[in-house]
Structures are given as C-alpha cells and as structure tokens.
Design a protein around this nucleic acid. Sequence first.
DNA 1: CTGAAAGCGCTTACAG
DNA 2: CTGAAAGCGCTTACAG
Lengths: 336, 336
Amino acid sequence: MAATINDVARVAGVSISTVSYALSGKRPIGEKTRQRVEAAIAELGYTPNAGARALAGRRTYILAVTEPVRPDTYTPAHMAFVLATATAARAYDYDVLLLTQDESLGGLQRVTTSRIVDGIIVLDVLAQDERAELVRSMGVPAALVGIPDDTDGLACVDLDFGAAAELAVDRLADAGHEVVGLLGHPESVYERGSNFTLRFRDAFLAHAARRGLQARFAMPERTIASVRSAMDRLLGPDRDLTGLVMHGEDTVQMRALDVLREQGLSVPGDVSVISAAATFDTSTFTPPLDTVPLIAEQSCSRAVELTIAQITGDAGPRVELIPPTYVERGSTAPRR
Amino acid sequence: MAATINDVARVAGVSISTVSYALSGKRPIGEKTRQRVEAAIAELGYTPNAGARALAGRRTYILAVTEPVRPDTYTPAHMAFVLATATAARAYDYDVLLLTQDESLGGLQRVTTSRIVDGIIVLDVLAQDERAELVRSMGVPAALVGIPDDTDGLACVDLDFGAAAELAVDRLADAGHEVVGLLGHPESVYERGSNFTLRFRDAFLAHAARRGLQARFAMPERTIASVRSAMDRLLGPDRDLTGLVMHGEDTVQMRALDVLREQGLSVPGDVSVISAAATFDTSTFTPPLDTVPLIAEQSCSRAVELTIAQITGDAGPRVELIPPTYVERGSTAPRR
DNA sequence: CTGAAAGCGCTTACAG
DNA sequence: CTGAAAGCGCTTACAG
C-alpha cells in the first residue's frame, strides 16, 4: 500500500501534525525537524491522499473547465484554451477536470455540489450563457473566459476584441486604405451569440465608419466555394478593396489567401492583410501575416488566478479586458 | 452548507448506513424505506461529498487522460479522442482529469499515488512510450489507445490500422488500379515512432506489393508548397498514378484535392481517392471521399471499459484491434 | 431488512 | 517550535 502521513511521522519521529504543517508551510518548523520529515517523505515516496486532504481541508485542488463543443466550433482554438487552462492551473498546483457538454449544466452542478472541484473555468462564453447564470446562482468560485451580456457578480477576462478590431482598422486607415473588408466566421457563429465575434464585428464596422472608411463584411463557411464567393463580395465588383482583416479559422484564412493569389492580387502589394485575434501561428502562412494575436495562455492564466483568488477569499468578481498588441510580419503596406 | 448524509438520514428517519446502501444498491432496502430516503435526498438536494466517498470507499470515480500535445500533433483529431474519452467515462459515472505534457510523467505519477484517479487512459501512444512503461511499473488500472511495441501486461485498444490499409489497397486493386500512392503525415510524425502511422504505412506498402501494385509514398508538411511537391512525386513524371490513399490532416487532404483540380485531374474519373483513418467528416469534401473511418468514440469507450474492468477486478490486460469498415462516397471508380 | 460504530488519511484549532 | 485529538463525510464489516 501507499505510505500515509502516519508512516512518515513514525519514520521521522514526529507527530502527524508536524508532517502536515511541514508540507503546507502553515506554521514554522524547526530546521532539523524539517529535514527529518523531508527525508522520511523521500524515503517512503509519500504523496498525500487527495481524498483525505479534500475531506479535512475542504479543498480538492481541482478546477472544472467547461468547454462546450458545438457543431461549428473551431476545434484547434478551443483545444488551445483548454490546454492553456490546464497548464495555468498546474502552475498553482491545481488539476483540471474536463466537462463536456453532454450533461449540459448538470455536470457543472454535480461537480460543484459534490465538491469534486474548488472552482470553475468557463470557456467559449456566449452573450447569453446558461453557465454564467448557474455560476452566479451557485456562488461557486469561477471565472469566464469571455464576456457575457450580464457580467453582474461574475469574474470575466478576455482579449479586448473591440480594441483589437480598432487596432486593425487604424493600421489600415493610417496606411491610407479606404475600402476595407472583414472576412469573419460562419453566420451560425454570430447567430448563436458568440460574444467575441460580435464584439469584434461591431467594433470593426463602427470604427471603420468613424475613420471614414468604406467597410464590407462577409461570413464564409469552411468550403472553398463559400470562401471564394465571400472574397468575391469583399473585393467588390470593381475590385477596389485594398485592406482585408480576417477573423476566423486558419483553413478559411489560407483559402482566402489562395483566392487572392488566383485573382492575381499580391499581398501586401495589392491588398494589405491582417489576421486578427488568431490563436494559430500566422508566421507560417504564405505570406506570413500581420496579426493582433489572441493568446490563450494570457486569458486562461488570468482566469485561473481570478478563480483561485475567489477560492482563497482574496478577491471578488470583476471584468478584465486584455489590451491587444499588433505584430508586424510585412503583410500590410501603404495604399498605392 | 451543503447537505450531508447525516441530514438525509435524519430527514428520512433512518440510519446513515441505510442512506449509503440505498445510494449504492449494495444491499437490499425495503420499498417504503427507499422512498423515504429518495424523498429526503430530493428535498435536500443531496449529493455525496466526493472527498469523503473517495476516502472511505477508495474510489474517486475519476479517470486521468494523458494526451501529449506535441508540436506537430493534429489538434482536431486529438481533441476528438479527448472528448470521446470524457463522454465514454461519463457513461460509467466517471469524470475525466486532463493531464498535459508539462509535467511529463510526473503528472501521471502524482495523480496515481495521491489517488486522485482510479485509472488512466493513455492517448496518442508511441511505439516506444514512456507512459506505457510507467503504467506497467505502477500497476495502475489503465488502457492505451494505440499499440506500443511491447504490450506485455498492458491493456491496449485501437483501430486495426494494418487491416485498414489493406482494405484501402484492396479496394483500389479490385478496381484495376496498378499504380497507387499514399499521401501520409509529415516526416517528423513517422520519425518519432507514432505507432499507428507506421503500422498504416507498412501495411499499405506490403499489401500493395502483395497485390502486385506499384506503390509510392510521400510525407507532406502542412504548407501548400509541400503538398504540391508531394503530390507531384506521387503522380509521377508520367502522371500514371490512378489510385490515391490519404492518411493525414484534413487541411492537407483538402489541399491535395486542390492540386488534383489544378492538374486537371478529376476524381474519380482520373484518380480514385480514399481518405483513410480519418477522424473528420469527409462527406463535406469536394468531392466527398470514400473513407475507412477512425471512430474515436469506438476506441475510447472500449478503453474506458477496459480500464474500469481493471478497477473492479473484472479483467486484466489485453490487446484489442477494432476491425475497419469501408464507407463509400463515390470517390473511387474502375480504372479506365 | 436495518443500525451502531470503526475507520479511511488528512487538517486544524487547542494546548503547551 | 511541537503534539494529542477532534472532526471532515462517507463506506463497510459486524450485529441483530
């Protein structure tokens, strides 16, 4: 059988409370005592029993992460957020329990009331999100990666998609472009209220208007045919589009670049292109694309911090927007 | 505070052991007693405390799933396996703890010795896999999705990739094709010993030889340039290739179809194409592709079953190969 | 068919 | 700086 705290105490010649405190650091331990304890732990290969620790300490050091995988979700991006959450959690000695959408809200409820987890990370948040309601009503420590319409009493963190869109628009406007387009997500994504796509689109259109630009918008599906027709609409009958912002899946963006090539349009010679809020690496594209990156690690580690702060009682709900940055790779140029 | 088993017992007017047994079904309960217990549980919204249950019952009802995300891993496929595992686990009342590669083997060791999990599901197995060694040496209930070189003492399950390759080759050979090609994964995938890609390639080449076919093989990267040159080699200087089997990422396969189109080659008129061991939906491709599907749900639910059987002591290690099936979508035709 | 009680392996006041 | 002990909320022999 695995060694217990009693075994460690016996081998070290101390009491179990001393072993426990040596482990948690919650009270000062004499230097030689600490060494004896550490030696015993090493000798026995002792690891505390998680169940016992959870029962006595009322902490499981497990966080739930809920990531609904919907039919049109873009898996790689979502996977990146799940993994980033797991990695961030480990930095705080937390493990991560993965909740799929199968049970819908039931799973969240179950792991909370059975105290399997200390807190919850909510991914891929919708403008109206049932999970946000549940988290609010249960009062469980949690953070949302994404901003729902009603953030009251909730801890939320996300890239400032509005500012990201404005940054991209400004870049194009400053370079003298007057007709710009946004190649976005499939229509279904906007329709179900995916909050970040809406925030990006609205800010893009509003800021383009503010800067006096003519702005176009298209929502392609994944297929090449759909991308081709979306690009056709963006380029316009007169082919007068010179600034393109893409916010969507990598396959769609690659296809869009293929279409530009087909049309004999060069980047950035004829069209300046920015890949906005991309979770993938646009430096391997042909050509490499300027980007306002969406860094899963940033949002997720902040979400983990906000959740743990609630667990330890160090902080309450709050909304945090992460300021965007612009990464230049040579895919934009002044209008000619 | 959340209701405990004591609360339930008091409200129902029974002892806590009766409540416990009513919940577990491990001993018969009188009909009216059961009803009183159930009413009390419903009234109080009682859910057993997971930590206490784990400590007393020596079962956490949590499975670890280890999925190393390597630089060249194809995220959507791997995500599909992770999700399929989570879903399968829930069907047996298990939750899933996601282990990233950060801690490498440390995480596996930690969750095992601290008894956070009852068993382990190992995904994306290499021919030589450290995790397999660890699982073997710790004697923890586990199942691998994939077949390492040394399966001794291990429970493994996977699609029969060899048979899958043979099925594809037979399909082409039976249709009269004499020159066939395999568009595979990037070279790095084969080099690090990803077991299923190797099994597929070897069986493809061996069976093609057995059937008297000339066989070609290429390992493209993700870029269009790489796919184009790989396809160029497969088609051959005389453009005499008429049968193509693809085993790799969806983006690469889509690009390959683009290349055939560029070359003025029609599917299946000029080239018969089969997408082998695909985790994605090839029916949305242009044109829809015949496939020997790799169904994550199948492997993963079997892996979960094998693991739980070990936990409950109902079964030991074993290797299971899932027979492949052929799905026709009209992308193959007799050679003309 | 049901109950009283030991015990799972920890954490944390309480004492010194 | 350290120890003895209560208690966390369950499961499961042991008794009846």
